[in-house]
Amino acid sequence: MGDTVLTARKRGLGGEAKLAYALLFPAVLLMVIFMVYPIIYVFILSLFKTDKLARIKDFAGFSIYASLLSSKDTWVVIGRSLIWTFTAVAAKTLFGVIIALVLNVKYMGRKIARLLFIIPWASSIPISVMLWRWVLHNEFGLLNHTLKITGLMQNPPVWLGQSSTAFLSCLWVDVWIGIPFMALVFLAAMQAVPQTLYEAAEIDGASKAAQFRYVTLPGIAAILLIATLLSSLWTFNDFNTIYILTNGGPAGSTNILITYVYQNSFEWLKWQKASALSVFTFIILSTVSVIYSRVYFRREEM
């Protein structure tokens, strides 16, 4: 084995390796053009004053970072983004696992149930959010109408009009859209758990809860990690839901980092500030990704 590697090294790149690099080249090139270059450019942009068309003017150093870090607004928005992400991902994971468990049980109509659960995710997100905006409308909305006619609430809240309910409404819509993906992924993972393990557990007298704790959960753990990582990244950057439902309002109370970046860049043309905020986003998401990767690969090695 050692000799083979040595021989390959001596000969330089083998034909297979060359082919692999050639096949990878277009993808790497596209990634450099569309991912690496923009990331570097955004960082550079944050160090310079710009005109309103984002053309670089004077070097400003790290002054914008100092200004942002000393601003209460920045911390409020970052804090809200973290609460938003953590709460939404936790809810999506919890509901996703429960629904996957339900869909994994054999019963009549299971296929139809699976189809129905995937619909919210298969629909266009902006259209789903727009529909929810009307559902939550105080005057014409289905939700308040239902609450009133069923007598559950005579004076239901103005969902998108108060800071707390607006944030919760946005959160709910994001969770509603995200659950099917999580459920589907968990369902696929659960189906990959060998049936024999459940049979062995049953013979050992394990309850259903114990089977879930000691068979299902370890069996889907790797997928759980990946799915929650993906969901964290998507949720942290979920622009559609908040922009369409509340546009960050009322009084900025539903702004998260991604909507704040949009506001500063495309609405107010403050490219330097928007770039610095994007760098914050990049750092936060990279940190989360690195932690997840370490946990994931450590598990793989074990």
Partner: peptide
């Protein structure tokens, strides 16, 4: 109207 704070003019 109730919920005025959640409504832009189109709503």
């Amino acid at each position: 109207q109730d919920g005025y704070l959640s409504q832009d003019r189109k709503q």
